[in-house]
Amino acid sequence: MGISRRNFCKTVAGSAASVAVLAMMPGNLMAKWSDKAFTANDLAAAIAAKYGSLPIEDSTAIEIKAPEIAENGAFVPVTVSSTIPGVTSISIFTPANFSPLVASFDVLPRMKPDVSLRIRMAKTANLVVIAQAGGKLYRVTREVKVTIGGCGG
């Protein structure tokens, strides 16, 4: 079969469209950066901005690994894991900071609900971790004592 001009144009247009769709996908699949949740300056407002008004219950199925005493609040190592089935999102908050939401992770289908990072804490305060599963939020709270605050200027 020869390539007619019409078919050639169709093919080119088709692949260009697929490329455009692929290039757009990450943006469409991923929620935009939750600016309202990250700029909220109290804990309840930050949780509400991130998760809406879903019911929250305390859970023992979320584990926070963090030092009891952090000597340097600029680098507090935190590991969060959960055994709650069907978790789709995990967020770390601390009322120590001017903006309590520190980071939020989408738990995608291939990903384990187990993440580590280093965070800033301005002073001794709780770490509050919220995990979403279905239409419910699960919360665990843990205090970290901070010797030298990490947000000084």
């Binding site: 680098f75 507090v76 939401l101 520190v102 992770f105 187990d114 993440v115 990072l117």
Partner: peptide, 19 residues
């Protein structure tokens, strides 16, 4: 996509992340 995180300024300088 196997990982997607949103970070704020509460994450330490030179972010370390593991998953």
């Amino acid at each position: 996509t196997v990982f997607h995180a949103e970070l704020g300024p509460g994450v330490s300088k030179d972010p370390y992340l593991s998953f």
